[in-house]
Nucleic acid binder design. Structure first.
Lengths: 128, 128, 128, 128
DNA sequence: GTGGTCTAGACCACA
DNA sequence: GTGGTCTAGACCACG
């Protein structure tokens, strides 16, 4: 398990966590029947509030991905799910477009914007 | 001027308005030097509260896109001092970075993100 | 007559103008008995609204510095006045102190602040 | 914490509050890393409206003096990234320039201004 | 509980 | 008429 959330992001923590857990399932790190870490454990690992982790679990339960049993034992009850992204891709795409509008207004050339993007991309994916 | 906001959206109204105004500028409907409608007028047109519109204008002012001269009916004009531009470049760069963090959390691969960026870029600069 | 106002300043235009006129009197450019320019003329020279200039003249009249006769002819009726500044000096002094507080909070050293001040001073008084 | 505002002053309440908070930091009452009171608490203490306090906090955030983490009860801490510092230096420099413009309009000589600056500097750095 | 947003209505100084 | 500020009261999502 390797879940990380970015507290400075505008995306709600519980949503980030939910996505991360879905990823774990999608990648096979968590398989059908596996037990999820306890809420306390996961809260400890991620430095998140108990409520926040609880909310994520409830969310996954509502979507029928996991089952929560007494004593807060949670199990994966579904096979790989890959319907995670569609709406999210649109969101990201919209944000990219907004940046272009803004860059254009500020007189930033297409070339410069492209350059900035790649520079950021390089920095981001080499340091993480 | 043809600005519309969606009150049922989750995106704050003042941010929607800000984006709309940026679009007006990007498309050339509002040109450098043009006057924006008064806060009251725009509030009337859009059925928004004075404060909401005011917040948008302040936002654009903060970004160096428009200039607000108190009492002097008009406010407008894109600033183009080199100082301003540097700060804006940093802002744009930060936004790009934010997108990467988000994309990463959502499980979007580096490659896919790059693809999306170029697609947007192509669409944006060929249609305008 | 050499009156200038700074439209981007936070100080109200009519107050700036009033101060400028007081300066003209203080320096002897305008002497007791001299006629002030007409409101229209002065408004033209300074690119100010008629109302704004009018307000300045009224202000000076209220202080007993000038007399306004029919047809808007205005005359200086008082000798040099030097009581312009006292309150203003305090204001400036307060603002200087505020800058120091802020600089201190930001961890700017006394030396650096001093350096910045002198640099600004040099720039300002050589270009104007 | 001992913040007071003067409702009868011409200076906007939120600016007074901002200055007070800066003073708290400058004097060491609030140290780097400390938590500020919640917006609601401070509004209660000072008999100000939520929005007024909120505006102050946002102002300080904009200047990079405090950090606001939504919902995460606390906000605080002085940022010290080098990027931030550069922007702040520019801001300070701009404020110094503004003072010069004002002083000039008010008829304060270069020499007198310099004198006032050094007097303030001496007072400030010997008493603290 | 927190901060963030929105509305409604008011007053001010300035132009 | 303008923008700027302030208050009062409301709702929201998040933690």
């Amino acid at each position: 398990m390797n879940v990380k959330v970015d507290p400075s992001s505008k995306i709600p923590l519980y949503q980030q966590l939910t996505q991360q857990l879905l990823l774990e399932i999608a990648t096979g790190n968590l398989q059908n029947g596996d037990q999820l870490p306890s809420i306390r454990d996961l809260a400890g690992q991620t430095n998140l509030n108990l409520h926040t982790v609880h909310k994520s679990y409830k969310e996954l339960q509502k979507r029928g991905i996991i089952a929560i049993k007494p004593h807060s034992k949670a199990f994966v009850i579904i096979e790989k799910s890959s319907k995670v992204k569609k709406a999210n891709l649109q969101q990201i795409s919209m944000k990219i477009e907004q940046i272009m509008v803004e860059a254009n207004v500020l007189g930033i050339s297409e070339h410069l914007l492209q350059q900035m993007f790649h520079e950021n991309l390089r920095n981001y994916y080499t340091e993480s």
